[in-house]
């Protein structure tokens, strides 16, 4: 079981076919206008002005709406009117499936309830962070999903420690890092001891002993755990309209002095106390 979106859940349950879902997505794409398209449809700007703003975006890292305001093509009130219209006319995937004839209204309500029950395991619990940023909800969710996947995938009992700001990445047997890009820029790291590495490998490979396994295979199991966590973080973030791209994970073997925090980054440390006195640590290196 993983973080899913509603259309995927319906296909998995055999409620709708892939063809029906694609038809509904096509309806959504026709109905749910992008910001520029909606502003033109509302006759607030011309297509030529949208084009000029798109050209300006090549050299300015700004959202289209903000740029149209800055360029004097829209007022701030008009920009908000466009957002409001986008929201009020948005066609959700369930509604699109009803329009496409793949679901009845009653079946939609029933399946929404079933979907909520299926995903209840991944509803975020509150986690306190020692700093404030616009993306705090993403970092809280990342920590929360890490904890849930330690239980779900690794079948380990643990106690999470208090999150703190770190000045160095402490040494440990190995680290796995995955870079996150898109609407956020960060590096997700998991640090494990040699003993914990073998424990994780035993669980993921389903073997009683991993003593004869090459280091490459052992390390790969932690990389895959990180891949699963970050993929599910991306899925959960996408439900909140936040785009996160993930890159293939890499392993690091830190020196005894640990690893420095790169300039311009904030480091959050989340200690994870595993039973038998073993410790895992999750670290987020957040740019900006």
């Amino acid at each position: 079981m993983a973080v899913k979106f509603f259309g995927q859940f319906l296909i998995e349950q055999g409620i709708v076919s892939g063809e029906a879902l694609l038809k509904a997505i096509d309806l959504q794409e026709k109905n749910n206008l992008k910001f520029g398209e909606m502003a033109v449809a509302m006759e607030l700007v011309t297509p030529a002005e949208i084009q000029r703003a798109h050209n300006a975006q090549m050299s300015k890292d700004m959202k289209l709406g903000d740029l149209l305001v800055e360029m004097g093509f829209l007022t701030a009130d008009q920009m908000n009117d466009v957002f409001t219209r986008q929201k009020s006319t948005h066609l959700y995937i369930g509604e699109a499936l009803v329009q496409a004839g793949a679901l009845t209204d009653d079946a939609l309500l029933k399946q929404l309830d079933a979907f909520k029950a299926d995903q209840a395991e991944y509803v975020s619990d509150g986690i306190e962070l020692p700093f404030t940023s616009a993306s705090n909800h993403i970092w809280e969710m990342t920590a929360d999903l890490t904890y849930k996947m330690i239980t779900r995938v690794l079948d380990l009992r643990f106690r999470s420690g208090k999150c703190s700001l770190a000045t160095v990445i402490p040494p440990n047997y190995m680290l796995v890092a995955m870079d996150l890009s898109g609407d956020v820029e960060a590096r997700y790291l998991i640090s494990v001891s040699e003993g914990l590495l073998k424990t994780i490998a035993r669980v993921i490979l389903g073997e009683e002993s991993v003593d004869d396994e090459p280091a490459e295979v052992l390390e790969d199991t932690v990389m895959e755990f990180v891949n699963v966590v970050c993929g599910n973080v991306a899925a959960k973030a996408s439900q909140a309209g936040v785009i996160i791209n993930i890159n293939p994970p890499v392993t690091l073997h830190p020196p005894a002095s640990g690893l420095p925090i790169p300039d311009g980054h904030t480091a959050l440390s989340f200690p994870i106390h595993i039973e038998d006195d073993d410790t895992m640590e999750m670290i987020l290196l957040i740019k900006g």
């Binding site: 079981m1 993983a2 973080v3 899913k4 979106f5 259309g7 995927q8 296909i11 892939g18 879902l21 694609l22 997505i25 995937i93 996947m149 779900r152 995938v153 895959e224 891949n227 699963v228 966590v229 970050c230 993929g231 599910n232 991306a234 899925a235 959960k236 996408s238 993930i246």
Partner: peptide
């Protein structure tokens, strides 16, 4: 894939001809 729950990725895979998408962990 671990990205199965990302709607855009799921949709793109179906459009490109995938018969289904299994999310990790499976």
């Amino acid at each position: 894939t671990s990205l199965g729950g990302v709607g855009d990725k799921f949709t793109e895979a179906l459009k490109l001809g995938a018969k289904n998408v299994i999310s990790k962990p499976f």
